[in-house]
Simulated assay, not measured.
Amino acid sequence: MPGTALSFEQRAHRRAFGENVGRIRRDRGWTQEDLAERAELHRSYLASIETGVRNPSLDVIVRLAKGLRVPVAELFA
């Protein structure tokens, strides 16, 4: 529902996903701007994913995986 607070579990899932994206990006020595360009996303949107603020769609998750050159499943590991 719009306007409802996120549960602890929802926040934890978003944070874990975002941390994985950020870790893989940093392992490659890339800035957020580098990955945003490769994944065709705005840098601020990527930053909000990495901090767990955003809940990216499946299409965005696929773009992130392609940009990072990893299988989608690795973003959830």
Rank of each mutant, 00 (worst) to 15 (best):
M1V: 14
M1W: 08
G3P: 04
T4I: 10
T4C: 08
A5T: 11
L6H: 10
L6R: 15
S7I: 06
F8T: 14
E9K: 14
E9T: 13
Q10E: 15
Q10C: 06
R11L: 11
R14S: 03
R14Q: 11
R15I: 12
R15A: 09
R15W: 05
F17A: 01
F17D: 00
G18L: 01
G18K: 00
E19P: 03
E19G: 08
N20E: 10
N20V: 08
N20I: 06
V21W: 00
V21F: 00
V21H: 00
G22Y: 01
G22M: 07
G22I: 00
I24F: 01
I24N: 00
R25A: 01
R25S: 03
R25F: 03
R26L: 10
R28F: 09
W30Q: 04
T31M: 12
T31Q: 09
Q32T: 09
Q32V: 04
E33Y: 09
E33V: 12
E33C: 07
E33K: 14
D34M: 12
D34T: 10
L35A: 03
A36P: 02
E37Y: 07
E37S: 10
R38F: 05
A39N: 04
A39W: 01
E40L: 08
L41D: 03
H42S: 13
S44G: 08
S44A: 15
S44Y: 12
Y45R: 05
L46Q: 01
L46G: 01
A47R: 08
A47S: 15
A47I: 04
A47Q: 13
A47G: 15
S48D: 13
S48G: 08
I49T: 02
I49W: 01
E50R: 00
E50G: 01
G52K: 02
G52A: 06
V53S: 09
V53K: 14
R54T: 08
R54D: 12
R54F: 06
N55K: 11
N55M: 04
N55T: 06
N55W: 03
P56R: 02
L58D: 07
L58Y: 11
D59A: 15
D59V: 13
V60Y: 04
V60D: 05
V60P: 02
I61C: 12
V62T: 08
R63L: 11
L64Q: 01
K66W: 07
L68M: 08
L68T: 01
L68K: 01
R69C: 15
V70K: 02
P71C: 10
P71K: 10
P71I: 05
P71T: 07
V72H: 13
V72A: 14
V72N: 05
A73L: 13
A73S: 15
A73T: 13
E74G: 04
E74W: 06
E74A: 12
L75D: 04
L75N: 05
L75K: 03
